[in-house]
Design a protein around this nucleic acid. Structure first.
Lengths: 213, 213
DNA sequence: GATCGTGTAGTCAAACTTGACTAGTGAGGG
DNA sequence: CCCTCACTAGTCAAGTTTGACTACACGATC
């Protein structure tokens, strides 16, 4: 699964009601266009698709005051909220070598409560360890790993990713256990969307020149 | 860019001439179906597409002796070889948070010569460092990183990935500098394809049960 | 007062990916 | 001798992603 659905659902949910451009702008604010496939086409497509599937409810709205084509506003449905939460949980646990999914999940983790996030992250560490074991097991020929030649570097790379991924997750667990951040039901939530008329300091026009990679 | 083109070009090139199923089987042998999107559909699609673009040359062949539909054999063209090498170089250098691209490139790096690979990997380390600097710069507000709240964990995660990625690359550089593996023009190359009639120990049927993740 | 850039809002075709499906052959078991 | 199962080889529709494009409004600039 890609990160786009999680991102879009989360963005719409935070707004209560949002049109495509608003979602697009939020994702840009979060830097998501840099670490995920959050291109305009994907966002509008995801909105339409999820509306068709009943995860979002679409309201046709008159053309905006600021020119441009007629907009559609979306609202998350109950089914959508359920899908969102299950996607979020899944993304925190799963180790699918897709860093964008984890990044998106980190951005929304505070929608769950602290204890649950800790549980999910511990589960994540276990998942990674299991995967690591499967890799070393599967790719170690009977006559020793040297037989693989340079192909062994592929395995080596996965194992390294697994180890560092587990280590990082462990660090995050410590920080959260230590009381960092504000989770669901712990009072004033952290506001991560742009309010109407607020300028976007991370908009495309003002990127740092070193960004090009 | 996805890894599929690199994988398919590399596989066809190693065979000299190969039909779709052979490529598919090689990729499975390398475990590529586990760490990349090397599904049958993608492979056949890539073959056709690249044939249309002149990177491969297609020979229509009579139905195989072993039953099944008529096969098409592909041969890499000059243009294809050029594309392959440039894709390979690019994949060794680029840090696009897509681990499958790097894995594929590792599998083929021995098609280049040792010194060039070392250069490319050093370049990779530099690229990662630059990217890391851009991230910390871009996502550190004037009033200190604490302002980001839990969103800062996204940045933290990238930075961690960059650091461990650079570290791993450095390790690989050391191993290659130390004389490991056999690169282009250094004599008997490592054979990474299945020869006709050889059994495939990693074929789908015999996977380890722990593989399911 | 034309036009140039920027922001708003979204569409579209082309390419790619996915997962399920087709279809023939041959070996082995009952 | 028939039936099932695995292997060989590939197709297809549905869904997704990409990158370029449209179209309007507003302010600034020449």
């Amino acid at each position: 699964m890609s990160a786009i659905r999680l991102l879009v659902l989360g963005a719409v949910r935070q707004h209560g009601r949002a049109h495509g451009y608003q979602v697009r702008n939020d994702l840009e604010y979060w830097g998501a266009h840099e670490w995920s496939n959050a291109k305009p086409g994907s966002i509008y497509h995801a909105l339409k698709q999820m509306a068709k599937q009943g995860l979002l409810h679409a309201h046709e709205i008159a053309p905006s005051t600021a020119g441009g084509p007629p907009r559609t506003e979306y609202e998350i449905t109950e089914k959508g909220t359920a899908a969102y939460l299950s996607l979020l949980r899944e993304s925190l646990v799963a180790h699918d070598q897709k860093p964008d999914v984890l990044s998106a999940a980190l951005g929304f983790m505070v929608d769950l409560d602290r204890e649950e996030v800790l549980d999910l992250l511990r589960q994540r560490v276990r998942t990674i360890r299991q995967w690591r074991a499967a890799v070393t097991d599967h790719y170690t020929p009977e006559d020793g790993p040297a037989q693989l030649g340079h192909i062994g570097e592929i395995m080596n790379f996965w194992v390294h990713s697994a180890d560092t991924g587990a280590e990082w997750t462990q660090g995050l667990i410590e920080r959260i256990r230590g009381g960092a951040y504000t989770f669901a039901g712990e009072g004033e939530p952290f506001v991560g969307v742009l309010t109407e008329g607020q300028e976007n300091p991370y908009a495309t026009g003002r990127r740092h020149p070193e960004d090009d990679r």
